[in-house]
Design a protein around this nucleic acid. Structure first.
Lengths: 153, 153
DNA sequence: TAAGATTGATACATCAATCTTG
DNA sequence: CAAGATTGATGTATCAATCTTA
């Protein structure tokens, strides 16, 4: 049977703890200071990066959410006036999610809080070399998950 | 306004992506091979480490779950026969969660799958030096979240 | 038939309110 | 009153089934 040596197990636990702590903190700061959830913020950032519009399926892929999960998320954000749905004129199975003016405004308002949080709670603790190494290790891990010899689906 | 330099932002995104990928994979393998969720596994591991019993409040703290969330989780695991509640004889406000024989058996059955996953998808990608550095960086981040000068609650 | 999206049933999380005991 | 735990209302995720269009 496989094992994990104690140092690497401790590293795994430190990874989980840091992630949990960071997400909790960023979530709380954004909620308290801008009354916005990290999921909503994430949707808006992804839309913004594509000029303000994305297909449902593409957006779901980017934020790593199930199609049904996104459908409901877009419902809620739509009720709040931050996005609207638009049918695709060429492939009528498809639907676009479009950031409204209110959505753009809300994103501009919230971004400084989130960016400050990432700077303060994450980036500030990394030297340039450490950031580079961390990035390389993390990418190796992500790439490994996609490789078929690593017990793929 | 604060900013995050592009390299550190890329590191932050790599961190989120790796975490998401790892959790998804470990969750799926445990579910498919042993029909068990990571939360249930986590509860049982924590109980095991304390000899099979913990107070509700202490367990909630360890797995980082709200008291109400744990109460319901223990309900569901109780229905499945993996744990039972026991009143505390000395402080009658308190309740113990106790791993049943079936719970121990279920944990023994599932552990190899989880350990294999951590070894294969995480630990295998880290040299000893990288593990040490990663651990130190991650702890620095977690510790930072607790320091009062870092925008604490 | 498959792709894109939504809906129904269900699982699981939180906060606020509540109950019991210290 | 405070601490430990549970319950009620609600938010948000998933899978399976379904609907429309390609």
């Amino acid at each position: 049977m496989q094992t994990v040596d104690p140092d690497r197990l401790a590293t795994w636990r430190a990874f989980l703890e840091a992630h949990r702590g960071l997400i909790d903190r960023l979530t709380r700061e954004l909620d308290e200071e801008r009354d916005l959830s990290l999921s909503w913020y994430d949707v808006m950032v992804n839309l913004q990066e594509q000029g303000g519009r994305l297909r449902m399926s593409e957006l779901a892929h980017r934020i790593v959410l199930s199609p049904s999960g996104l459908s409901r998320l877009v419902d809620r954000m739509g009720e709040a006036g931050l996005v609207v749905r638009e049918p695709d004129a060429y492939d009528r199975r498809g639907t676009w999610v479009v950031l409204t003016d209110a959505g753009w405004a809300r994103l501009r308002d919230a971004a400084p809080v989130h960016i400050r949080g990432v700077a303060e709670h994450f980036a500030a603790h990394l030297s340039e070399d450490e950031a580079a190494l961390l990035r390389s290790v993390l990418r190796r891990i992500s790439d490994g998950l996609d490789r078929p010899d690593e017990r793929a689906p």
